[in-house]
Simulated scan of single mutants.
Amino acid sequence: MKTNRSSLGEEFIENAVFRIDESMRMVQKSLDFLKEEDVWKRPNESSNSIGNILVHLCGNITQYILAGLDGREDLRKRDAEFAIQGGLSKSELIDQINTLILNVKSILQNLSDEQLTKHYKVQGFDLSGVGIVLHVVEHFSYHTGQIAFWTKLLKNRDLGFYEGLDLNLKNENGC
């Protein structure tokens, strides 16, 4: 379905979806290295487990995209996301976030310019649609880094996010 969106809007959504997919790829790769019991380990009482982070991401993304941009009822219980100490398996957690991300990408790909510039009240903030998408992308990326860091601490290994790529290539002007 073609939306009523400018080329700038198209470019913005295309790049937002790319970044969401990158975070999802890194989360999946991190989880592939973990044993079931690793998912709910906490480094200390002031920190969250990878399981908590994944539950929190689902809550945040649901609140911002599904309830915010898509107008669904906001049923989030944020404090509960951090109180959970188990009960969901690694595969259940990844299935939940994968299903959510598929839904989110469908919503994003159908947003109009009007929806991207309209303002919404989400979690007490007044944000445009663009602001909501930026928040979700950066928030997902932030927690992806936490998941990767905690996985590296647990497993003492490089996670190979960029295997096969030469990240030392220099930029080319005019790309």
Rank of each mutant, 00 (worst) to 15 (best):
V104N: 00
V104W: 02
K105L: 13
K105Y: 10
K105W: 14
K105I: 15
K105D: 14
K105S: 09
K105A: 10
S106T: 09
S106N: 13
S106H: 02
S106F: 00
S106R: 10
S106L: 12
S106V: 10
S106W: 00
I107G: 02
I107C: 00
I107F: 04
I107L: 04
I107V: 15
L108D: 09
L108G: 01
L108H: 03
Q109L: 08
Q109E: 11
Q109R: 13
N110M: 11
N110S: 15
N110H: 15
N110Q: 15
L111K: 14
L111Q: 13
S112M: 02
S112K: 08
S112V: 11
D113F: 10
D113M: 14
D113H: 10
D113L: 13
E114W: 07
E114T: 13
E114Q: 09
E114S: 14
E114Y: 10
E114C: 04
Q115C: 04
Q115F: 08
L116S: 03
L116G: 02
L116V: 11
L116R: 06
L116N: 00
T117Q: 12
T117C: 08
T117K: 12
T117H: 14
T117R: 14
K118C: 01
H119W: 15
H119S: 15
H119L: 15
H119Y: 15
Y120H: 10
Y120R: 03
Y120K: 11
Y120L: 11
K121Q: 14
K121I: 15
K121G: 03
V122A: 11
V122I: 15
V122C: 12
Q123M: 14
Q123V: 05
Q123A: 09
Q123T: 05
Q123W: 14
Q123C: 03
G124H: 11
G124Y: 10
F125L: 09
F125G: 02
F125P: 01
F125H: 13
F125K: 06
F125E: 06
F125T: 06
D126I: 09
D126N: 03
D126H: 12
L127T: 04
L127D: 11
L127R: 11
L127N: 00
L127G: 05
S128F: 00
S128H: 01
S128M: 11
S128G: 06
S128T: 06
G129Y: 01
G129D: 02
G129R: 04
G129Q: 01
G129M: 00
G129F: 07
V130K: 12
V130D: 01
V130Q: 08
V130S: 01
V130P: 03
G131Y: 01
G131I: 08
G131H: 06
G131V: 05
I132V: 11
I132P: 05
I132L: 07
V133K: 02
L134Q: 08
L134Y: 07
L134I: 08
H135Y: 13
H135C: 02
H135F: 13
H135Q: 07
V136H: 02
V136Q: 02
V136W: 01
V137A: 05
V137E: 09
V137G: 07
V137L: 10
E138L: 12
E138H: 13
E138R: 11
E138I: 10
E138A: 05
E138P: 00
H139S: 03
H139C: 12
